[in-house]
Design a binder for these strands. Structure first.
Lengths: 122, 122
DNA sequence: CATCACTGACTACACATGTAGTTTCATTGA
DNA sequence: TCAATGAAACTACATGTGTAGTCAGTGATG
């Protein structure tokens, strides 16, 4: 069971999933544009993630290199599962149905998904 | 924009979406099995939901009748959108792909979704 | 009419989260 | 060697959340 990751922490994870290891400053630089967090905030989030053992730290002189300990796929799988369980009774079909009805699916999306499903069966 | 509903609050909403209006005691009875919350806890959650104007109250003698003010579909749409945005860059296809790869989709699911998509195009 | 039970209102409290400020320690350049 | 700099560690603090306890009022009941 992957520990719960908050929204802000998730932003940090995305950065580390894209490239790792990174130092706190490097992570801060990479989220600065999108979120405008201070370096301190980023450090706090990194500490919390490390405390949860979701990322690992490796000492590099006087600073740390941070790397994910959880695969993005594994994390997404867990979160998706929880989401589908909680809101759609664990069934994916109603979710897709819902997205479709809410016009969240373009014709292109539909074609893509059909293609995907065709491959799955093969 | 529908106010943020917490996990515990969501449980209450599911009950009210199933049947409304209900009194606090009736709601408590209906969640008791699943969650084992005390009546007081349920009342607190109802108050918070009412404060957010997600449910409405109607005085009925000395007690209240509670009813949802937000449609389940509207709520699901909002939450789904946020979820897909945050984790899958707003694209539904990767979500479905992910669930598929994570073996969350049975053959029956796949058939159901294909059927659904066929209808959508018609 | 007096009392009791039930109901909403108010209060509580620990932990999570978003968002930092402050302190301390080590490194490095002068 | 000593001061400045940069990094982690520690502290802070308001708000949200889960989970309830207590209080006060009102309608029902004997």
């Amino acid at each position: 069971m992957v520990e719960r990751i908050s929204d802000a922490e998730h932003e940090i994870m995305e950065v580390l999933w894209q490239k790792a290891p990174l130092t706190a400053t490097e992570v801060a630089d990479r989220v600065a544009d999108a979120k405008g967090w201070s370096l301190q905030t980023v450090k706090t989030l990194l500490s919390r993630l490390a405390a949860k053992a979701v990322i690992g730290t490796e000492r590099d002189g006087r600073r740390f290199q941070y790397s994910p300990l959880v695969e993005r796929d594994a994390y997404l799988a867990g979160v998706s599962r929880k989401f589908v369980d909680r809101l759609f009774g664990g069934k994916v079909t109603p979710l897709v149905a819902h997205l479709a009805e809410a016009d969240e699916l373009s014709d292109d999306d539909i074609r893509e998904i059909e293609e995907l499903l065709r491959e799955l069966k093969a």
